[in-house]
Write a protein that binds this DNA or RNA. Structure first.
Length: 279
DNA sequence: AGCTACTCCTGGTAGC
DNA sequence: TGCTACCAGGAGTAGC
């Protein structure tokens, strides 16, 4: 499922195709995807010019302008199966395309989403919607000092805490499992019991994991994620634990096991990530 | 405050 | 072979 590295890859590849373009038509094929009626979606977007595409956590923000006022933005979240790609107008649609933008150069931006969990919606004030998100894990605010103190200030299991977008914004199931393994921490460890040294290690490993994944254009472990260029990512070949249950840990040789933590499939090496003491 | 359960969805697959 | 039942999972929400 797309997480920060996949979303950043999509942003980089889609940006040159859409920046500077004006929307000449906007079609919604599934109402919930666009957060309102197809008519309102179209009215809000036709005539708007795409100024830039930035990423905040797992959101893509298409900043818009229009003559005589503020154009708001498109907030796009890929969730599980969302995908963006560009084709020429008149080319075949995919049956799973949920929203389409015709641009003034004859190209068309497709938002495809098999499971319909994703969003591609126009909002007047994107800042208000992104307000509650925690720091970007690759940003300047995500320091080892801040992270160690933030873990101490909470009393939550590490895995659900790291998945909480209001705590740190952009991590998902894959990169949390990978980062915890690299830091030698069990996902059920209570956050305030992580030593400062371990917290610093985890901060380092989160950043390294994400940076390496971006470098390889994300992870494609199933058929869902591919880049806008139609290519799979390459980071799935680097997985140490995710999806590797039953296989040996590349660090110690113990068998990777899968558990459920907070309703999420969770992959660990019991030897590298010792079970925390209860109480 | 933090946990669990439920919802939204569909394609794939396990089980019979 | 063909059917059904179940599962994955990010994020929002409700309830305890």
């Amino acid at each position: 499922m797309p997480e920060l590295p996949e979303v950043e890859t999509v942003r980089r590849l889609i940006e040159p195709d859409v920046v500077g373009r004006t929307v000449v038509d906007a079609v919604a094929r599934w109402q919930r995807t666009v957060g309102g009626s197809a008519g309102r979606f179209r009215a809000a977007l036709v005539g708007a010019r795409i100024e830039r595409v930035r990423r905040r956590a797992k959101f893509l923000v298409f900043e818009l302008s229009r003559s005589g006022g503020c154009g708001g933005a498109i907030l796009c979240h890929l969730r599980m199966t969302g995908r963006l790609y560009v084709r020429n107008q008149g080319e075949a649609e995919d049956p799973h395309d949920r929203a389409l933008l015709d641009l003034d150069d004859g190209r068309r931006l497709h938002f495809l989403d098999v499971r319909k969990f994703g969003r591609f919606e126009h909002v007047a004030d994107p800042a208000a919607r992104l307000d509650g998100l925690g720091p970007e894990p690759l940003g300047d605010a995500f320091t080892a000092e801040w992270f160690a103190a933030a873990l101490k200030a909470r009393r939550r299991q590490l895995k659900p805490l790291l998945l909480d977008q209001s705590f740190v914004a952009g991590l998902g199931n894959i990169y949390v499992d990978e980062s915890l393994h690299r830091a030698g921490l069990h996902p059920l460890t209570q956050s305030d019991r992580v030593s400062t040294v371990r917290a610093r290690r985890l901060q380092t490993e989160i950043r390294a994991t994400l940076a390496e994944a971006i470098e390889r254009e994300g992870s494609s472990f199933d058929r869902f994620y591919q880049t806008p260029a139609g290519q799979p990512g390459g980071y799935q070949h680097q997985f140490q634990v995710y999806g590797r249950d039953g296989q040996p840990c590349s660090s110690c040789g113990a068998t990777i096991v899968k558990l459920v933590v907070g309703q999420r499939g969770t992959h660990i090496c019991r030897r590298c990530q010792p079970t925390p003491r209860p109480r």
